[in-house]
Write a protein that binds this DNA or RNA. Sequence first.
DNA 1: AAAAAGTGACTGACTGGTCGTTTTTTATTT
DNA 2: AAATAAAAAACGACCAGTCAGTCACTTTTT
Lengths: 210, 210
Amino acid sequence: MPKISDKQRESRRQQILEAALACFAEDGFHQTGMADIVKRSGLSHGAVYLYFQSKDDLIEALADDRHRREGVLNSVAQGSGDPIEGLHALVRVYAQWLTDPAGEARRRVGIHGWAEALRNRRVRNSVVEGIDMPRALIVALVERGQHDGLIKRDLGAEAIARVLIAIFQGFVLQKCWGEDIDVEACMAAVAVVIEGFRTAKPDVRRRARM
Amino acid sequence: MPKISDKQRESRRQQILEAALACFAEDGFHQTGMADIVKRSGLSHGAVYLYFQSKDDLIEALADDRHRREGVLNSVAQGSGDPIEGLHALVRVYAQWLTDPAGEARRRVGIHGWAEALRNRRVRNSVVEGIDMPRALIVALVERGQHDGLIKRDLGAEAIARVLIAIFQGFVLQKCWGEDIDVEACMAAVAVVIEGFRTAKPDVRRRARM
DNA sequence: AAAAAGTGACTGACTGGTCGTTTTTTATTT
DNA sequence: AAATAAAAAACGACCAGTCAGTCACTTTTT
């Protein structure tokens, strides 16, 4: 005779996660006390421990949000047949994600997670796996572009992917520090960066498929 | 009748700072206890407090290392008359700094500082001011390049600077997480990025000075 | 001898986590 | 439909351990 339905259980879980997200975003993992999370969640101390074994459990559950965007990115990248257009599309999605006010807390927690990844192996794995997906996506696009003669062949696809991801990460940092950034202008610069990877004169020997 | 010379005093201070750097690099600011720093420094608990008022004092003293490279960057950027060559030179210096094993601890502490900047105003100011200097340097180079017709004029110099800095920051993260990165290949990609900012056909109306 | 430098046991506040108790919900019986 | 029983869910006072920081004292140097 269980008391609450699975739906209610999941809702309570989310309630705690949301409280923890807000607290961690404000003060980081280690400066946030369980008491803070308890207070913010509106539940009691003991109730929280019914849903999460420990504070570390909560941290691991929040350190990484890759599960949210997996599908979106994939479809965006594949949307157009043109690999370079795919890269541009990824940048557009990213720019939107970067400027969404509702995502502020997640971005901040993400940064705390980046630091925590340096000392917590599980968080590190979570973070690294989280960037593996978009990286693989970019690598695939670039390799296709290189095969089609659209992207310079003397550059490593992996290297290009890491550069793009580094740009994303850096902008999250700069944005979260509250610097006033002209996102439009910056994304225009990133677009130029991508165009810089394009072959000067398209290799006609093996041309694109469409 | 003071007991130790200024030189000795400074040396003791460094001794503590080095111990704190190593500890913070390993475990972050908040998971490192004063006891850890005390033990590692070889001094006593009380002695540390003779040199630093509080743990926060130590954090602020270490959160940012801008004072170390101020001179170097400036001379490197100005070394050649060509602004674009100046950007390439900056990237080379940065690549060297990124791969220097002796700098590992500083890079890691830097990342912890990036997270701490989200909640500690003084650390934030320190971090932001720390990137202001190289940013101003890049902006100056780019604006000169644009004036000389070497760099695309439809891009904001600020935006380009922020993109390059974001790349730097992102690579620090990825490197410190222990991913095996082909730094050579990545820096080659960054070089291509910089070349991408160059005007396709040099603007002949106002050509460079040399 | 005098004063700074250095020591380390100690403290009070706070931490994450537990557990005996109370409340709420549902299944069953009346 | 009302009463009952039982178990899950929620509560919050409590605990052992840890923390940053202090201070009465000893050592070292001039």
